[in-house]
Design a binder for these strands. Structure first.
Length: 877
RNA sequence: GCCCCUGUGGUGGAACUGGUAGACGCGCCGGAUUCAAAAUCCGGUUCCGAGAGGAGUGUCGGUUCGAUUCCGACCGGGGGCACCA
């Protein structure tokens, strides 16, 4: 980059640009000769020419499958991707150098809503848009220097990919795992189209602003609930998953033991079946509530005034759980009364209620206001009686609703029992009466896979007037998407395509219509990890042998936002595929790491409009102003990078201005990977500075090869100890994903080498060893510059092919320990003692220390606690 | 609303299973180099205090010889909630 005729280091240029300081660097000195761009592209070419990361399936080495969640090709990579793939690359390179046969593939989660939005906004075909984005993003990812075997790349929108998932769906269908049922969708009444939850903003359609309605649609479902127990039990085996993800999945599946039973309806020949997890509170029942779309709703209340209005109100609610839970709880009294199963003289009103879900349990509940907040609110609102039936064991007065442990009161035969015992007794009694049974319910619902959209995998089914629903024959796959679609009309372009849906029935040959729904895009991401094992197989999704060799994924890495859905669907899919004979694994991901988000400060102009960080610059007076207009800019809070708030950084700028190694180093240093990372200019500049420093450290002093001496001076010995300690801890840090600590450790070693350098000659064996270990330790994080420096040291090997440096364990041991001495828990001195010293002797040494003596101040020693090699705590009275 | 996570100097963070709080970095301060600056190098940097010493890990309380770490309550920030991926 040229500026004023002088070659200027690019980071400086970038910073100057940010500050808006375009003054002439007249006497600017030419900086270090390190030209990162040339070096980086040179080494990427070397790896490519040598096929360093191509997978060898004949290898005798143990396999190791490193996988980062594949990206959605939205246009350009974002910093979150850089973080994700930098992390994975450290693991892949580290494992490779530790003797594993590593597979590290990449592909594209290429179906999805944004492509259709682009089509509507810009008139560009979703496929064209997607493939163009893939080309851009592939180039971007490649410029990061990732150790990826690009020959295995897949794109899920490619018919050679999705044909196999159409086959899978047919296999699931034949196995009874796929079925149709009605379920609710968000409906935009103006566009006449189904909206995704994210397209519903404050209960209104994002484009039309019309209040969204709930509407029933017949859709395809996969029976994930068949696997509820297995998915739940399997969580226990996932010992290399974060606890929080396992807990979230457990809660999501939500297995609960309870009671299902029938309330007889007074004066009617009908009953309402309810499910409850609190059968013990049955004597506290104040009402029965059923879902507005319950089959009995119309029958019980259809003639009542206000019924239609009530249904309309409910239909105006969103379909998401958050929307339902946060909406005001409202009910509609049917006027019908339900008879208490234990006492026929007692009846409770039956309400329709907007918070009862038809999808969960039986679509009906009974409410016990004294022991549940929601029921309490409901009863208060509709002035229903509240009867306490559980009281604390000590009989204390409590504020209702009370949901803790206790004993039953006001409950006839349950009185005096504890909650758990009462649950069992109530279930037993109901079973004896023959009106119900103890059962297990799951919060988990079946997976609705139908989407009324174009840019997805067509569902290979045909609707025939005489034969009903008929699967497309296997040899007719794939059912491909038509290219000539228009997005000028709202709704699904597949449905209003003039010819596409017209076909013949595979069964009777008569004219029939194709299913125009496409799959949820979670479908594609539920098996892509298996496709990577055998990506060019045309006959089948993947060969069983290859899957058996490579699966499960040993280390999966991705955003914590996928903790439930994607990961649970993939676990289900793998089981279902296994049951259909595709493979023999159940758990797709043996190890999981969930990274935090990338955040950045936000900027707004005077009108409150969001600005890109590059639009906000500091002027000479130190004020934050708009780069073009000079108008004042305010800096807002630090938030997750998002296009809508414009607080995004384009990785291309970073890679161009600082280089891939600096970008990777920054993203791996400072913040622990599981936590959020705040992107800052000073952070990336600090990293770039270090890359240059490392380069100088190794290149500025000429090194001549030296024989390893038989004896080392104490200083050399110390240098070697530091070197081996650093590398030994480094491996442990990388394995534990403590990348920030790993970097800190190496920086410490670099500091130690710098100090050592100033007092020792260049031809020192220990010095050379330290430098070589430093370079090799940094290689997984900064692969380019370390290769360059390795070559500079005169090696004709490349680090990408090398094994991890050997650690001399004898250097790690120390024969002394520094021990802290506390008096009454307060640190008073440190003493250095021989390692594993006798406790009595350590105690004596501690007590004789002058600082300790002073702190004791002649007081009587009551007790001395000695933790060997760590601490001595003297307790005085 | 429900579930999950998180809170340590000016700042990002470190501290193995309860045992020397602040590693490493950013920033800042001082120095070297320079005509001067940038870059680079060296030193310092939790707070209060001249010092001895005292205080200190969101807040309050508890367990312990000893708590950033364990327990309880509260407050702040974030993620997920089934059609965003």
């Amino acid at each position: 980059m040229l500026l004023c005729g002088h070659r200027v280091k690019q980071t400086q240029y970038f910073r100057a640009q940010r500050r808006g300081l375009f003054r002439c660097f007249k006497d600017f000195k030419v900086m270090a000769a390190y030209e990162m761009k040339d070096i980086e592209s040179k080494w990427r070419k070397v790896w490519l020419d040598r096929q360093s990361f191509a997978v060898d399936e004949e290898s005798k080495k143990q396999k190791y499958y490193v996988l980062e969640m594949f990206p959605y090709p939205s246009g350009r990579i974002h910093v979150g991707h850089v973080r994700n793939y930098s992390l994975g690359d450290v693991v892949a390179r580290y494992k490779k150098s530790n003797g594993f046969n590593v597979i590290h593939p990449m592909g594209w989660d290429a179906f999805g809503l944004p492509a259709e939005n682009a089509a509507m906004e810009r008139g560009e075909h979703p496929g064209k848009w997607t493939y163009a984005n893939i080309d851009v993003m592939r180039t971007q990812l490649q410029s990061m220097g990732l150790s990826i075997d690009w020959s295995r790349e897949v794109a899920t929108c490619h018919p050679q990919y999705y044909r196999h998932e159409q086959k899978m769906f047919l296999d699931f269908y034949r196995k009874g795992l796929a079925y149709r049922k009605e379920s609710m969708v968000n409906w935009d009444p103006i566009d006449n189209t189904v909206l995704a939850n994210e397209q519903v903003i404050d209960g209104k359609g994002w484009r039309t602003g019309a209040p969204v309605e709930r509407r029933k649609l017949s859709q395809w479902f996969l029976k994930i609930t068949d696997y509820a127990d297995d998915l739940l039990d399997g969580i226990k085996t996932l010992d290399r998953w974060p606890d929080k993800v396992r807990i979230m999945q457990e809660n999501w599946i939500g297995r609960s033991r309870g009671l299902q039973f029938k309330f007889a309806l007074e004066g009617l020949d009908e009953s309402v079946e309810v499910f409850t997890t609190r059968p013990d509170t049955l004597f506290g029942a104040a009402f029965v509530a059923i879902a507005p779309d319950h089959p009995l709703a119309k029958k019980l209340a259809g003639n009542k005034a206000g019924f239609d209005d009530f249904l309309k109100t409910c239909a105006a609610q969103g379909t998401s759980e958050a929307a339902i839970e946060q909406a005001e709880k409202i009910g509609f009294d049917t006027g019908v009364r339900a008879v208490h199963p234990f006492d026929a003289s007692k009846t409770v009103p039956v309400y329709l209620a907007n918070f009862v879900l038809m999808d969960y349990g039986t679509g009906a509940i009974f409410g016990c206001p004294a022991h549940d907040q929601r029921d309490f609110d409901f009863a208060t609102k509709y002035k229903l009686p509240i009867t306490q039936v559980v009281a604390p064991v000590d009989g204390a007065e409590v504020k209702l609703p009370y949901s803790d442990e206790g004993v039953l009161v006001n409950s006839d035969f349950l009185n005096g029992m504890e909650v758990e015992a009462a649950k069992a007794a109530a279930i037993e009694k109901i079973e004896k009466l023959g009106v119900g049974f103890g059962t297990t319910q799951y919060r988990l619902r079946d997976w609705g896979v139908s989407r009324q959209r174009y840019w997805g995998c067509p569902i290979p089914m045909v609707h025939c007037k005489s034969c009903g629903i008929v699967p497309v024959a296997d040899d007719q796959l794939p059912v491909t998407l038509p290219e000539d679609v228009t997005f000028d009309k709202p709704g699904n372009p597949l449905a209003h395509h003039p010819t596409w849906k017209h076909t013949t029935c595979p069964s009777c040959g008569a004219a029939a219509e194709r299913e125009t729904d496409t799959f949820d895009t979670f479908f594609e991401s539920s098996w892509y990890f298996a496709r990577y094992c055998d990506p060019r197989n045309e006959k089948e999704a993947f060969s069983k042998e290859k899957a058996a060799y490579w699966l499960p994924v040993d280390q999966y890495i991705g955003g914590v936002e996928h903790a439930v859905l994607h990961l649970l669907y993939s676990r289900f899919f793998t089981r279902a595929l296994s049951d259909c004979g595709y493979c023999d694994v159940k758990e797709p991901f043996a190890g999981l790491f969930t990274q935090g988000m990338v955040t950045h400060a936000t900027f707004k102009d005077q009108d409150g409009k969001w600005l890109f960080p590059t639009q906000a610059v500091t002027n000479d007076a130190g004020q934050l102003v708009h780069v073009d207009t000079g108008a004042p800019v305010t800096e807002g809070r630090i938030e997750k990078m998002s296009k809508s708030k414009k607080n995004v950084i384009d990785p291309d700028d970073i890679l161009n201005n600082y280089g891939a190694d600096a970008a990777r180093l920054f993203i791996l240093s400072d913040s622990p990977p599981e936590r959020d990372l705040e992107w800052t200019v000073s952070g990336i500049e600090g990293a770039a500075k270090f890359v240059h420093r490392l380069y100088r450290l190794v290149t500025e002093i000429p090194l001549q090869a030296v024989e390893k001496p038989n004896e080392f001076t104490p200083a050399q010995q110390e240098m070697r100890t530091q070197t081996h300690k650093a590398l030994s801890g480094l491996g442990a840090d990388i394995e534990a994903f403590h990348m920030n600590k790993a970097v800190a450790r190496l920086r410490e070693l670099a500091n130690a080498i710098e100090k050592y350098k100033s007092v020792h000659s260049a031809g020192d064996w220990a010095y050379r060893e330290a430098l070589e270990y430093l370079i090799r330790g940094f290689n997984p994080m900064m692969p380019h510059v370390t290769e360059e420096l390795w070559a500079h040291l005169g090696h004709d090997t490349i680090l990408a092919d090398m094994t991890w440096p050997e650690i001399d364990a004898s250097l790690l041991q120390s024969d002394t320990a520094t021990i802290a001495v506390q008096v009454n828990g307060k640190m008073r001195a440190t003493i250095t003692l021989p390692k594993d010293m006798d406790q009595k002797a350590a105690e004596a040494a501690a007590l004789s220390d002058p600082n300790v003596q002073r702190a004791l101040d002649g007081k009587a020693v009551k007790k001395v606690i000695v933790v060997p090699n760590r601490i001595v705590n003297v307790v005085v009275g």
